[in-house]
Design a protein around this nucleic acid. Structure first.
Lengths: 135, 135, 135, 135
DNA sequence: GTGGTCTAGACCACG
DNA sequence: GTGGTCTAGACCACT
């Protein structure tokens, strides 16, 4: 299964599902056009309430990550994402980086240390992205 | 004032205070050993509930960013932070970077674009850090 | 083919069929008395469930847009519509206009802008109506 | 009360709330910055579940019609709406007008009759908008 | 007291 | 069987 949930996390379950699906589609683990499990299927599989999954799916649909085709089910979108929210996201990214940069300094890491960590994650991402991708 | 709060933000106010103090100390705007306003002073100044400020101060004390000296007041710490929570923070940073990397991809940004944004923020930070710093 | 269905739309498929047939008859693309494809024919052609087409045909028959002659097939009606439901429809139109007027204001359009858009659509309709019309 | 709900309507209750608040703000019945009743207050007043109200408020917040100020409550936004979704809305308006134009013809109304009805609603709106408005 | 999240169980429209 | 909506009641974080 390409999706794992931690019900103990502070992160809401529905948000974990959203994040998981976004990650899977961005990585290519879920190719564009793939059918997702139904709301109730995924709910039983993850042992959560179906409303929780429904909320996640609705948010994903709003973000154009998935789409519902009436009577057939839910599928990952082909043209993933739209640039409309790009600037919005960039601001959020900047705020987040700034925040973690401060935290890093408070545990004795330099800006360079911080950058190394980021690069590390990006590289790990790049390599994992290859796996299972169609392209 | 070196601290600004936005009650409209999704970010909890107490977290904004924590973040603000950490930023100010990391930048050197608040030199080590500086006296901070009392809980009630800061509360009236920011027009927030004093419990909110108290919660922020508690968290800052736990993170060894500030220390309370009974009868004298609250002061920024000398030794900035401790390495104890370093690994914990690193994991959080990795999780955050991963998350935003996914979001970046979903608005059509490449990993390189993402890295550029991060570098940009880090550089901006480095330059602003110089200002007002004692070191 | 004078009828196109989009299974991705939020609009139910049966409603799209109803709307499509109504548009075609109103425009004169389907002259009064024209034979429509059978439920099963249309179903296979549109690649939808035949229950869906049947539901659409039932609604169209209720609205006196088409009539079923047993053993012969389904035909578009001669007298286009009846005034019985007129007041009902007028109320629905008013509600819809009101709703979209509000939405228009919320994206910064004035009432005049709104009216212009409506006129534009009406004119476009008038011109397209001429094509293929018998009258 | 500026908000009335019909639990028997086909329209979902949460959508009626959304529509009601949007109408009230667009008309000026709710001036920008006005405090809305809390989720639970409104829920008891309308005799619906608080989750239903919460869903409506969340949608209104996503549409930037209202905003939540932490611990103080929910308020109508000052700068109402953003032009970002304007083209999207215009397309929806066009589709809706087209649809109702067809329906109008099927009950024997001409395009001019239709336009009259629209104008009527717009004028009624304009006059009611004056009432209670600050401007 | 504010909104946010989650569960459990129900009903409905659609295909 | 698909998702969408609603209720009732619970817990939690924030102010």
């Amino acid at each position: 299964m390409w999706l794992h949930i931690n019900p103990r996390s502070v992160e809401p379950i529905y948000a974990q599902i959203v994040q998981g699906v976004k990650t899977a589609t961005a990585k290519g683990v879920l190719a564009p056009g793939t059918k997702l499990p139904s709301v109730r299927e995924l709910a039983t599989e993850l042992a959560v309430n179906h409303n929780t999954v429904a909320k996640a799916y609705q948010e994903l649909e709003r973000d154009k990550v998935i789409e519902v085709i009436r009577g057939r089910g839910t599928f990952t979108c082909l043209g993933q994402g739209h640039a409309a929210r790009r600037e919005e996201r960039l601001q959020e990214i900047r705020a987040s980086v700034h925040k973690w940069l401060v935290e890093a300094h408070h545990v004795g890491l330099t800006s360079d240390d911080f950058l190394s960590v980021v690069k590390e994650v990006v590289e790990e991402w790049a390599s994992s992205k290859g796996v299972g991708e169609v392209e």
